[in-house]
Simulated scan of single mutants.
Amino acid sequence: MRPIHIAASALLALAISPASAQVKDGHGNALRVGLPAKPAADYDGGTISAGRPAKCVLDGDAPQVCTFYPRNRDGSFAIDVAGLAYYADKVSPSEIIVDYDNGARMVPQGSFTRSKRDPACWVQGSDRKICVY
């Protein structure tokens, strides 16, 4: 009986643990700086280009190193901040729609508009922002 209990506990732990939320290609392979080598399908239905190091600020957090991925050749992008993946689809010169990959599914974050004070930032209301430098 004890081996079944251990196996059941291990399965439960796997079910509760989220999958990696790192930015991924269309096959679910995690990307990193320099990848993909040429534009390829991404995990959120777009086309993603090679990642490069950047500095990102999310909401009120301190600036941190991230990986920036251009998408769709239209100003859309994805960022990987400490293993957290955000995919932004550009709707107009001043608006993006953002999805967050929580490791199990894409979670819509809604519409963000370009900040007039800092064009590297996209804001939603007074307390949500995504900045990429």
Rank of each mutant, 00 (worst) to 15 (best):
M1R: 09
R105C: 13
M1C: 12
D101W: 12
Y133G: 08
D89R: 14
K116D: 14
K24I: 03
A50I: 09
A21F: 03
S92I: 01
G103T: 10
K129S: 03
D25Y: 04
M1S: 14
S17M: 10
V91I: 14
L31V: 01
G83H: 07
D59G: 12
A21T: 03
A50W: 09
A21D: 05
K38E: 06
S17P: 04
G46I: 11
G34H: 00
L84F: 12
L14Y: 12
I16E: 05
V33Q: 01
R52K: 15
A120Q: 10
D89L: 11
S17F: 05
S92F: 01
R52N: 07
L31H: 00
Y43Q: 13
V107M: 07
Y86S: 09
C121W: 09
R73S: 09
E95L: 00
A120M: 07
G34P: 02
S9P: 06
G28N: 01
R114C: 03
K38T: 11
I16F: 08
K116E: 13
G34W: 01
S17E: 05
R73E: 08
A10G: 11
L31D: 00
L84A: 15
A7F: 07
Q109L: 15
R2G: 10
P119S: 03
A8E: 10
A82N: 07
D25V: 04
C131W: 00
Y86K: 09
H5L: 14
T47E: 10
V23L: 09
G75M: 14
D42N: 06
I4S: 09
R128P: 07
F77H: 06
A15T: 14
A54I: 09
D118F: 13
D127T: 12
S115Y: 14
C131Q: 00
V81P: 02
Q109H: 13
A19E: 11
Q109Y: 13
T47H: 08
F68T: 12
A21L: 02
R2L: 12
V57N: 08
V81R: 03
Q22E: 08
S115A: 13
F68S: 13
R105E: 15
Q124E: 07
A54R: 08
D127M: 06
N102Y: 06
Y43M: 10
A41D: 15
S9H: 05
D101L: 06
A13N: 15
V65E: 13
R71H: 02
S92N: 01
D101N: 15
G75F: 14
A40Y: 10
R114Y: 07
R2P: 13
A30D: 05
R52V: 08
P119M: 02
D101E: 05
L35H: 04
Y133S: 10
R128G: 02
R32M: 04
G51V: 09
Q124L: 06
V123C: 00
S126N: 13
Y87S: 13
A15R: 12
S126M: 06
Y69K: 04
G83D: 03
A8N: 11
K90V: 00
V23T: 12
